[in-house]
Computed example of a mutant assay.
Amino acid sequence: MLYSTSRQMNSIALFVCLSVITVAGCSAEKSDNIPELLIPVTGTVQLDGEPLGGTAVKFLPYGDTKGKGGYAITDSAGNFEAKDYSMAEGIEPGVYNVTFSKIAMPDGNPIPEGQTAADVGALEILPPHLTSVNPDNMKYMLTVESEPISIDYELNSKR
């Protein structure tokens, strides 16, 4: 059972990762167009005190920040390592608005193995204040300079 759950989480993570890459207009292969300077960004994500596995973490450029931003997928313990959209580890220096996304069954269970989100009516299970950029509430901002960053996001399902 644990193996099956782990495989389901990996399937979800792969689906979210491929969706993010497709939306960004990039291929799933490592690009030759890797930015000159990428800074390692690692951390954890928890929701209401519990690790939030199988979740996409998106780093969206803010203000004058150049580049495309980055993304990460959390493992079952909520750990992540950010990547640039070229698939290289790290993200460019700058200021980022950070959003979170978790696609699952309406009851919160993982998408069944061999199924896609569309097949089973899976949907975003995180509340809108975590999934969208809101100029009135820029709670999850990250400034990346020249040193590696480790950050822990302790999310609350309530606003």
Rank of each mutant, 00 (worst) to 15 (best):
L52M: 11
K102M: 11
F59L: 13
E29C: 05
D48K: 08
K66W: 02
G67L: 02
G67V: 04
S76M: 08
T42E: 14
G67Q: 09
G49R: 02
C17Q: 13
E36S: 15
G67Y: 03
E92R: 05
A28Q: 14
S11D: 14
D107V: 01
E89R: 06
M9I: 11
A82N: 09
I91L: 12
G67W: 07
C26F: 12
K68C: 01
N97C: 12
A82I: 09
G108Q: 10
G114N: 05
G90T: 02
T74W: 00
P93G: 08
L14M: 11
E50P: 00
P93V: 06
I103Q: 01
V95T: 15
F15R: 09
L60Q: 11
E81R: 09
D64G: 09
A56Y: 02
P110K: 07
G69L: 04
T55G: 03
V57D: 08
G67T: 04
G67F: 07
E29K: 11
F80C: 03
P35W: 09
K83A: 10
C17K: 14
S19Y: 02
K30M: 12
V95D: 07
F15A: 14
E50H: 14
S11R: 07
V95Q: 11
V16C: 12
V23C: 09
S31Y: 06
P93F: 06
V20Q: 10
A72Q: 06
A28V: 13
F80V: 03
T99F: 02
I12R: 07
Y62H: 13
F100N: 04
L38I: 11
I103N: 01
K68G: 02
C26N: 12
A82R: 06
L60N: 12
M87G: 00
T116Q: 13
C26R: 15
S31L: 12
E50C: 10
A88Y: 05
P35K: 11
V23D: 13
K68D: 08
Y85W: 14
E36K: 15
Q115H: 13
P40H: 11
E81W: 00
K58E: 12
T55I: 03
P51G: 05
E89I: 04
M105Y: 00
S11F: 04
T44L: 11
K83R: 14
L38W: 07
P112H: 08
A88P: 02
G70H: 07
A104W: 00
D84P: 04
F100Y: 04
Y71M: 10
A118R: 06
N109Y: 05
A24F: 06
M9W: 03
A104K: 00
E89Q: 10
V16A: 14
M87K: 15
N97L: 11
Y96S: 08
L52P: 09
D75W: 03
N33H: 15
T22W: 04
K83C: 13
G114M: 04
F100C: 07
L52Y: 06
Q46G: 01
N33C: 11
N79Q: 14
A118F: 03
T55Y: 01
T74S: 09
E36C: 08
Y62A: 11
P112R: 09
V98G: 08
S76T: 07
V16N: 14
E29Y: 12
P40F: 03
G49K: 03
